[in-house]
């Protein structure tokens, strides 16, 4: 099913999204990779708040290339999400229910998604030139010293993603492959 969604990702919207849906995201998302996640959770433990409002937020696991003059951002495709599994359940519990990345997730992340109505979206890994076209604004908001791993506030327009794992835990990586193999072997 094809869906156009205006962010933030509320619980109501999240519940209507199903594994395999092709979704076009509109609105604000935040970038964070390994180093930013580690710092956010370390600082949180010290009582320092996360540098953006996590309520209904969507985090894009990406470290873009620098923008050429006159452009918003460089190449900006997803990184492997599994590396963020260590920190993701806490982020989800804080309301950041949307995640954009690629690759498999841990049981713990999926359990947190089920509990807090999280959605894991997949963007095409390695298609950074194409995806950058859907990013209309980019503002560095925290951790500038982390370079490509700094936190950026992105505004996206019709940013194409697929629901990889929905809030009920249905997983496209398992289902998609299974269905392909079943169809192939029937022939």
């Amino acid at each position: 099913m094809e869906r156009h969604i205006d962010l933030p990702l509320t619980e109501e919207i999240a519940k209507t999204l199903h594994m395999g849906d092709n979704v076009y995201l509109n609105g604000v998302i935040y970038t964070a990779r390994d180093a930013a996640h580690e710092r956010m959770t370390d600082q949180l433990a010290e009582g320092i708040p996360i540098p953006f409002d996590t309520t209904d937020a969507t985090i894009y696991y990406v470290g873009p290339t620098p923008a050429r003059p006159g452009t918003v951002i460089g190449s900006a495709g997803p990184t492997t999400a599994g590396r963020m599994d260590k920190w993701a359940p806490q982020m989800i519990s804080l309301g950041a229910r949307g995640m954009i990345g690629k690759g498999a997730r841990s049981k713990e992340v999926i359990e947190a998604m089920k509990k807090y109505h999280g959605v894991y979206f997949g963007a095409i890994g390695g298609a950074g030139a194409l995806l950058a076209k859907c990013i209309v604004d980019c503002e560095l908001i925290a951790y500038e010293d982390l370079g490509p791993e700094a936190i950026r506030k992105l505004t996206v327009k019709d940013f194409p993603v697929t629901v990889l794992i929905d809030s009920e835990g249905n997983n496209l990586y398992e289902q998609g492959r299974k269905e392909y193999l079943e169809a192939r072997d029937k022939e």
Binding site: V62, G63, P64, T65, G74, S75, A76, G77, T79, I124, G126, A127, G128, A129, L130, A132, K133, P148
Partner: peptide, 19 residues
């Protein structure tokens, strides 16, 4: 989409992948 991506990168001189 993967084909479209490397063609866009080629013509617009943008890195094919952010990594």
């Amino acid at each position: 989409q993967i084909i479209q991506n490397f063609e866009v990168a080629d013509t617009e001189q943008v890195p094919i992948c952010q990594d």
